[in-house]
Design a binder for these strands. Structure first.
Lengths: 200, 200, 200, 200
DNA sequence: TATGAATGAGCCTTCATTCAT
DNA sequence: CATGAATGAAGGCTCATTCAT
């Protein structure tokens, strides 16, 4: 992330750990107060670093935001690619597996997810967000592919597939706004519930 | 909104029109660039007013945000109250009527809706947002009431009702992110599609 | 210079006067301490404005530097164009007229000139300095034209013309480093002295 | 320069070589980007040393600047003293020898020279620059002495001697701004050309 | 010697808002 | 009603230098 991270393994490990700490603290603050409303001073306070020291671990406030989005999308995309790659699975099982992975990922990255949604605007608009944008689009394409297979197998309801896709995106992403760990509904209940709405 | 608006009717009409112009410009800018990233200078440019002149029509930047949310929620709530009040309608018809009104309202206030979602955070957190918060909660309660009647009538699927509620909130609110007027899906298609997913 | 200066004449005059005050103060400070070593806080102190108020009159620190260079080069160029345009004058008279105008201009803009020389580097390097760069080049081309006419008339010494040009540029520009008003040598003495060195 | 350089000859040689490398890199960077605009980080990158390592070879950024000026002035002064010491030479030959040595020195230290001119301001102003200032003044006095002998021998033109001195300083120093090795004019051509302008 | 993390003051600039005219 | 100048705190970020390892 920042120009040259240390090369010696021991130092490198510490560096990485602290950098991750900064990113996590940022995700939390951005989620709670908003990206724009969070000052680097807030981050200084939250991390215990000093104003200048912070910049050993990051390039800029915006890079931090990009990193948060990457940490959200990249591993999710990887898991989803993996699920989709297994062609022996029935389409509806594949959808359930995918939605489960997705909901689980959202629940495990609530802060990241809230930030991602809140800052959607800047992500869609500007140049340096291309990779993030591409990940999001790839994810949607994979999801649509699975829905298409379900549709072909007669497993979807009567609702237009692209509308179904958007409905699904809306309901899962919205999860980050209300889900609290330890609540009445666990990951499976949520994921299966959503799939039940979609599948015939 | 701002201290004393004129009392003579002719002046008053002009005043109101200009004030509405400011609010609409603000909604557009906030939706496009974010509330925090929009400066009053942007607003000055967009409205053609001067820095000082702007403040004849508004109290503060934040009041503008509150007003945008009110303009979104209040008329929606009114329509929904009206729909719900008709106890002769079948529960599923009521749900369809409600969702139609809701989707139509979102489509008619894309900017307002995007702003409302984007600034969710500040709405939930602070004192002066109580009225907005109450409106949102009342809306959800009304919606849940209709769903309960559907459930009682055996019209819902097997999915937990509170999860269904949240799914519906997610999908409809998300509409503002992708809906473009003149697209393939019109209001009815969207509203009915969503209901089809929910209802048995 | 700054986005929209006022349009009403009375205000406009005051605005322009204060803006000029800022530019002059900047020229003095930049000349004394260097552009890089002068902080906006220094400028605030020198102008009596406040940190924010300063920015009513300027766009940025760098624009201030550009403006200083423009104020130096543009009027000089105009005078020189005028001198060169008179084709009835003998070449050596033209050279003397030109050098006199030039020396007088340097003496009247010591601060500007010192700044221009000191920041030569950034002027030559970056994009937004094209106009300044073009002015400088145009000036040198005009000067060379006059020298060429002198040479053709056999009025120059034996020294290579392009070297003569550079020598002249060096000696006149250097004047800003030592000239103090009221010194032993006045404008005419300096300008004529330089010409005497150049001409046969 | 920095606290204790090594005393064992082998180490000392390596130390000196690296220190010289740092000074040369600094001269290049300062000349290209300006002293103020060059950060120690730039220097770290240019030298391949680390932030801390750099400080084994230097005391401070400013000492680096002083050293660059010393490296420029001291050897020049030594050569010039030597030229001036030979009282058997004719005044004009002496002037030619001096200017030749001077031009050659400038050409051999373009970076140093550019830096010296650019940072003139700080050199003249501050305490710790006394030695540099004294060298510059001594150089000018020696030069003026030779001009005086030329004048006494009737070899100068009609131009005031102190103006001639300043003109010469201007033209030779300015050489650093345009001279590029391998150009049409070599050291002799330049030095002789300048002298031809000065001498009758 | 060499490392790279850390410091914290200072940089330029923007901001929402007010008020004399 | 309208203007635009003014405020001054706060914004994100950079810097030369130091020091424990």
């Amino acid at each position: 992330m920042k120009a040259p991270p240390p090369t010696r393994p021991a130092l490198r490990a510490r560096y990485d750990a602290r950098q991750q700490g900064v990113v996590d603290a940022a995700a939390r603050l951005f989620a709670q107060q908003g990206y724009g409303a969070t000052s680097m001073a807030d981050l200084v306070e939250a991390t215990g670093l000093t104003a200048g020291g912070l910049y050993h671990y990051i390039d800029s406030k915006e890079q931090l935001l990009i990193r948060i989005c990457d940490e959200l999308l990249e591993p999710l995309l990887e898991r989803v690619e993996h699920v989709v790659a297994d062609e022996t699975q029935a389409p509806d099982d594949q959808l359930r597996a995918l939605v489960y992975a997705w909901v689980a990922h959202v629940e495990g990255h609530l802060d990241h997810m809230v930030v991602f949604q809140q800052e959607r605007r800047v992500i869609e608009a500007e140049e340096q967000w291309r990779r993030v944008r591409r990940s999001r689009k790839r994810f949607e394409r994979l999801l649509d592919g699975v829905l298409a297979r379900c549709e072909a197998a007669g497993l979807l309801g009567t609702v237009d597939r692209s509308l179904t896709l958007r409905a699904l995106l809306g309901m899962v992403n919205h999860t980050a706004q209300w889900y609290r760990p330890g609540g009445r509904l666990d990951t499976s209940a949520i994921a299966d519930g959503f799939c039940d709405l979609i599948l015939r």
